[in-house]
Design a protein around this nucleic acid. Structure first.
Length: 644
RNA sequence: GCCGCUAUAGCUCAGUGGUAGAGCGCACCCUUGGUAAGGGUGAGGCCGAGAGUCCGAUUCUCUCUAGCGGCACCA
């Protein structure tokens, strides 16, 4: 013992524990207390996560991580992936394992196997995982020289693993983890044994295809997704959360509320029903007013444009496979996939003076793009859509201010839908780009300055800018915590050049304007999809397709109900009348399911004294009001947020 | 586009090698009922499209189309 070097470990509270020689995390935990030893899963040694069984041979700052710690979930999820791989290898030995990381809410593992996995297999695999957990297999770390490791996995028929090892840079140790008969290449760290993963804290969710190494040129593997939590309660809560999200699915609500539909003959192109179109036109009117407020001029440009323009703009070369092309009298046209070239055409009419800049042109531009069939997803990814598109033509000196104004406008609009939290991603120059470094330096600086001025925090997307300029992406968070990238703001030095846009400067010479491409909603289709899910179909009064339904208790009140309906319509409300021969219970139930925000009920009493009983969606309370008061209240509530 | 699954009434779904069924919705009748389903009767289907096997296909096989879960894509 004395021959060994002493090891002093500093704990997070600053206290130091000394040991006569190398010590494992588990020994340390036991030394501190048996409770901790039981709860411990890994140890952080000088900022690096280590297995508890690994010997610490020199002085270090350490902290023991238990199941309760934030980092624990990732470890548990990663281990679940290994346990699943072990189960799959036991059940289907012909399967090759590839990679299986922890991800948000869970994990996946990609397998190479001819036979497809079925949903039934998931249950079998899950049952075997529980057995492996019960076996409480010790998870043992070891290192192996790289060539030996390659040979080792090759000899087991694990070609993919061998390929991964071969691609690990020289000098990095190859670590293996063994649990039972299963050995996997892994960076670690792992739990001390399989039992640390609770047998009722995980669930396998789905099977999906995934390309080897994420490259569509490679073969497709089978991916199994699972979710893992600290305990049974957290798991149940998560599964409930998935269910709740499914209830909000805009495709389901779109059908139930008759907002829109899709059909085979126009895949990816929505057919808007009266209810959905009401939401759409309300939204459009709102954005139109906002655009006027922020100094835009609205225009409208052709949907079908000759190929020559797309050749000049560069789209024919870069974007052709996404464009719908048609021919008429030997002329080739394309449905516009973007509005920018047309906006430059408007800018180019007549002569623009520097005094006219910045010129802000907006269009609710109807675009078509041929999206890959597998990408289509309800309203969220469509082939025909309308952008709240805008292009600002300005001088380089105006970029910062214009960007600032745009950020303020975007925040202003998002706030009206309850989206208070907005994240910003800044994408700077890509490797392949147009324009000099000086121009990029300046443009990037302008965007950052603007974002900082309005007090937004941003994260960097290195090299993700467009080839024609840097960009900002704006991400909102919906009512159930999901992020959606909607807004975008891009600097473009190239298109004005290609389409020969100029203005006359104070020096009486021609100059090239800068173009800023920008959108706030992105597309109306997608934004409405997001709104449907955000509100769970319960739209605020100003957007609700039907704002109020008026109905009677019995047919004796029919004529009064008709009077009320007439007054509601005269007040400009989107009202419906329900004179069906049904009981009030039935009608309340049905209109509640339809998510109508207000139900006006008239019985004998109300008809008698010119009042109405109001029931609001989501509440069982009823309130009887004087009819004109009730109508005034609804009218007030229906005012669009920008008019309040 | 790729892998897997799915396609039956307006919706949700059951079912069968001998051309179909439920619930809800819809229509009509009875019921006039005070806030989340009153009762009865009835009408609805080329079982996604095309081809093949078979005496016979909604059912089995293949192709296509669309949808779903992912992957890739989102310039």
């Amino acid at each position: 013992m004395n021959a060994e070097k002493k090891v002093a470990l500093t704990l997070p509270d600053g206290s130091v524990r000394e040991f006569n020689g190398p010590v494992t995390g588990m020994t340390l935990a036991n030394d501190i207390g048996p409770g901790l030893a039981k709860a411990a899963i890994i140890i952080v040694v000088d900022g690096e996560q280590w297995d508890l069984s690994r010997e610490i041979i020199k002085d270090a700052h350490v902290s023991i991580i238990t199941k309760r710690d934030e980092e624990a979930l990732e470890i548990l999820r990663h281990d679940a992936a290994h346990i699943m791989a072990e189960a799959v290898k036991e059940l289907y030995p012909e399967t090759q394992v590839t990679i299986g990381p922890a991800i948000e809410n869970g994990f996946y593992y990609d397998f190479a196997r001819k036979e497809p996995f079925t949903p039934g297999d998931l249950e079998v695999i899950e049952a075997r995982m529980r057995q492996i957990i019960e076996r409480d297999e010790e998870i043992i770390r070891s290192e192996m020289p790289r060539d030996e490791a390659v040979e080792f996995f090759k000899s087991m028929g694990e070609e993919y693993k061998a390929e991964i090892i071969a691609s690990i840079p020289d000098g990095q140790p190859i670590t293996l983890y063994r649990q039972g008969d299963f050995i996997d290449l892994c960076r670690g760290p792992h739990l001390p044994s399989t039992k640390y993963l609770g047998s009722d804290t995980f669930k396998l969710l789905s099977i999906a295809g995934a390309y080897w190494r994420g490259d569509s040129n490679n073969e497709m593997l089978q991916r199994i997704y699972g979710t893992v939590w600290r305990d049974r309660k957290e798991l149940k809560a998560y599964l409930l959360r998935i269910e709740e999200a499914e209830k909000r699915d805009h495709r389901k609500l779109g059908r139930e509320m008759s907002l829109f539909h899709f059909q085979e003959e126009a895949a990816g192109m929505p057919f808007w029903h009266p209810n959905g179109w009401t939401i759409y036109t309300q939204l459009e009117g709102y954005v139109r007013r906002k655009q006027i407020e922020y100094g835009y001029k609205e225009i409208n440009t052709p949907k079908l444009v000759d190929r020559k323009l797309w050749e000049t703009s560069g789209h024919w070369e870069k974007f052709r496979e996404h464009m719908y092309i048609t021919e008429s009298e030997e002329q080739i046209f394309a449905l516009k996939p973007m509005n920018c070239p047309c906006h430059v055409q408007v800018f180019n009419q007549g002569i623009v003076s520097y005094r006219d800049l910045p010129l802000r042109l907006a269009e609710f531009g109807s675009c078509h793009r041929y999206e890959p069939s597998g990408a289509l997803h309800g309203l969220m990814r469509v082939r025909s859509f309308v952008q709240d598109d805008g292009h600002i033509f300005c001088t380089k000196e105006q970029i910062t201010e214009e960007t600032e104004i745009f950020c303020k406008m975007l925040l202003d609009i998002y706030k009206d839908f309850g989206f208070e939290k907005v994240k910003v991603k800044f994408s700077d120059r890509p490797d392949v780009r147009a324009g000099s470094d000086e121009v990029w330096d300046e443009a990037e600086r302008c965007l950052i300055d603007a974002v900082e001025h309005v007090g937004l925090e941003y994260s960097l997307n290195p090299g993700e800018g467009a080839f024609y300029g840097p960009k900002l992406e704006f991400i909102l968070t919906d009512a159930i915590g999901r992020d959606w990238q909607c807004g975008t703001h891009q600097v473009d030095f190239v298109l004005p050049e290609r389409l020969d846009a100029n203005y006359i400067g104070a020096d009486n010479a021609k100059h090239r304007p800068v173009m800023l491409h920008r959108a706030i909603l992105g597309s109306f289709e997608r934004f409405i999809g997001i709104l449907i899910e955000n509100y769970a179909g319960r739209f605020p009064m100003w957007l609700a397709p039907t704002q109020v339904v008026v109905t009677g208790i019995s047919s004796d009140q029919d004529s009064y109900v008709e009077q009320v309906y007439k007054k509601l319509m005269e007040a400009g409300l989107r009202a419906e009348i329900d004179l069906r021969n049904e009981k009030i219970n039935y009608k309340v139930r049905e209109h509640s399911h339809a998510k109508v925000p207000a139900i006006f009920v008239a019985g004998g009493r109300e008809a008698e004294n010119n009042s109405i009983t109001v029931r609001r969606l989501g509440s069982k309370n009823q309130e009887t009001l004087d009819l004109s008061d009730a109508i005034n209240k609804l009218v007030a509530e229906s005012i669009e947020p920008d008019k309040q």
